[in-house]
């Protein structure tokens, strides 16, 4: 038996609906035989009548409704059809969900699933990585699972958290990533994972870029250069300790992110390492992100817009040469 990243998300939701009566799923086209644009809820509406509900195309109201339900004791999961469309719900997420507990002391346990990141041909409005935007605002937990195992356990953990969680699932990983079975163990939310040990340079990254980084590390290993790869897993909270420990081992840091370059996760990691671990660095830290343009449609352009094995490798050489 093998499980894809997408199946792990479906299985996690099956588990949640079965185990927790408070859970319901709210989103566009997720019910009936259709089961979602990506089939992440396929079969669940039949299995759990009345708990997998189609919504109108109203991202703001979807999240607002989830907020109200959560304040009333439910554990709603909102499926955004694409992360990009969550911009319509930014106000509810940032200003209503994100401020609720701080203002009223009433927790707001909603989980918003964002099918994130680029796949070729998806263009400017079906490709975005929005973890940086959500992390910038207070009151939210922001997760970016990069493996089948994390996709499963982190979604189950997300729903258990008493606060709003932005769960960024990567669309490219949906079908490309397979594991032998669902995991039995879990690493807690908030902990980064060293997915490949190394000694010469640390690549700190998240989501689909973890796999690009691993491919690059593999190439360099052939030349005797050992790159350590840190998968952040959770963007907020950010596991600064694990990152600093990695940089302490390697002395060099490259941050890789699929989101736009201004600010964001890579900038935050570098800011923390330079302020907290400047003495650990043997070279200036570097980062590589997507380009500062909308995400292009054509595969030839798209593959150059985001960081790829070639551009990451070039940055690695640059940092190693310092």
């Amino acid at each position: 038996m093998s499980v894809t990243y997408l199946e792990a998300i479906r299985e996690a939701q099956t588990y949640l609906l079965r185990e927790d009566k408070r859970v319901f799923i709210y989103g566009q086209d997720i019910a009936g035989k259709f089961g979602g644009a990506f089939k992440a809820t396929k079969g669940l509406a039949e299995q759990f009548p009345g708990r997998v509900l189609n919504t109108p195309i109203s991202e703001d109201a979807m999240v607002g409704t989830a907020i109200g339900a959560a304040m009333e004791g439910m554990r709603p999961i909102v499926e955004m059809q694409f992360a990009d469309f969550s911009s319509i719900a930014l106000n509810q997420i940032l200003n209503n969900a994100g401020t609720q507990y701080w203002r009223t002391q009433v927790p707001c346990p909603i989980t918003i699933r964002l099918p994130s990141g680029g796949t070729k041909g998806s263009g400017p409005f079906h490709s975005q990585s929005m973890e940086g935007i959500y992390s910038h605002y207070p009151g939210l937990v922001v997760l970016t699972p990069a493996t089948v195992e994390d996709a499963y356990t982190m979604l189950i953990d997300a729903v258990a958290i008493d606060d709003p969680v932005i769960y960024c699932e990567h669309k490219y990983l949906y079908y490309h990533l397979k594991a032998d079975a669902l995991p039995k163990d879990r690493l807690p939310i908030g902990k980064a994972r060293v997915v490949r040990p190394g000694r010469d340079l640390s690549i700190v990254t998240n989501s689909a870029m973890v796999h690009e980084a691993l491919a690059v590390a593999q190439q360099f290993s052939a030349d005797g250069i050992e790159i350590e790869v840190v998968d952040l897993r959770s963007v907020k909270p950010l596991d600064t300790d694990t990152v600093l420990a990695s940089v302490a081992r390697t002395g060099r840091l490259l941050c890789v992110g699929e989101a736009f370059p201004w600010g964001g996760v890579t900038a935050e990691v570098i800011a923390r390492v330079t302020t907290e671990g400047f003495h650990l660095l043997d070279a200036a830290p570097a980062r590589i992100n997507a380009k500062d343009t909308p995400i292009p449609y054509h595969p030839n352009l798209w593959s150059e817009h985001r960081p790829n094995a070639k551009t990451i490798a070039a940055k690695v050489r640059q940092v190693l040469a310092e």
Binding site: M62, G64, A66, I67, G68, A70, N96
Partner: peptide
């Protein structure tokens, strides 16, 4: 913004 919260 509060209308849908009441709905929820």
């Amino acid at each position: 913004a509060m209308i849908s919260v009441v709905v929820g």
